[in-house]
């Protein structure tokens, strides 16, 4: 599914990421690498297999696109450093020719040098590329002509039909001046979002994308 924003083309991917054609860039939010190991370290037995699922999804996108750059809009790594970091570094090494950029999120807590060691450029609050601003949190106050692409809220859309039918899906959200990405990570939940009339919402239904409005 393709969307045009400010003369740029964005392809939404069923892996819950966006492919920015002009810049050959993948946009990914809320990966939460390390969360499963963080839980396991605390004695909570989340299955390890779920860790690999994230990397399989990442590899699938890398293989099907000619990627020049990846922008992670926050919450790349969940909390303290742990052994999942090594798994992530190994993955990073597979794609040395690709630029990777992280805009810090509230869960990205450990020293920035760690990212720099593996050639990931770090931005504190936001990053501007062309007509777009990338930030972890959706911005409450927007400048004129600004378009912000963010994550953090793990947006989910609720559908209601006749005969009391109800369904819930993770979704992409595109407002007048602001877009929000669904959370990419396997072991992350979701929260409902409020939608205005002219907004666009695209749900991720199993492995398909469906425009809701």
């Amino acid at each position: 599914m393709q969307l045009r924003l400010k003369d740029n083309t964005f392809t939404l991917l069923e892996q819950k990421a966006i492919w920015w054609e002009e810049e050959r860039t993948l946009l990914i939010s809320d990966l939460h690498i390390g969360k499963i190991t963080h839980f396991r370290k605390a004695g909570i037995a989340v299955p390890q297999q779920a860790i690999e699922e994230n990397f399989e999804k990442l590899d699938a996108m890398m293989n099907s696109h000619d990627v020049k750059c990846i922008i992670f809009v926050g919450d790349l790594f969940h909390s303290d450093i742990n052994s999942e970091w090594d798994r992530f570094c190994a993955w990073r090494n597979q794609y040395r020719e690709v630029d990777m950029i992280l805009v810090l999120g509230n869960h990205d807590e450990f020293p920035i040098e760690k990212y720099e060691e593996i050639c990931i450029a770090v931005y504190d609050k936001e990053l501007r590329v062309g007509a777009f601003t990338f930030a972890h949190h959706p911005k409450p106050i927007l400048e004129q002509d600004e378009y912000v692409i963010s994550g953090h809220v793990h947006p989910v859309v609720k559908l209601q039909g006749l005969a009391n039918q109800r369904l819930k899906f993770p979704c992409f959200y595109f407002g007048e001046q602001q877009a929000i990405l669904p959370s990419f990570g396997e072991f992350t939940g979701g929260y409902n979002i409020e939608v205005l009339d002219n907004d666009q919402v695209i749900a991720v239904v199993e492995d398909k994308l469906i425009r809701i409005q």
Binding site: T37, K41, I44, A45, P47, Q48
Partner: peptide, 14 residues
């Protein structure tokens, strides 16, 4: 072990 442990770098502790 927190269920089947497949990966070498597991840190499960209970």
């Amino acid at each position: 072990t927190g269920g089947p442990s497949l990966l070498a770098y597991d840190e499960f502790k209970r």
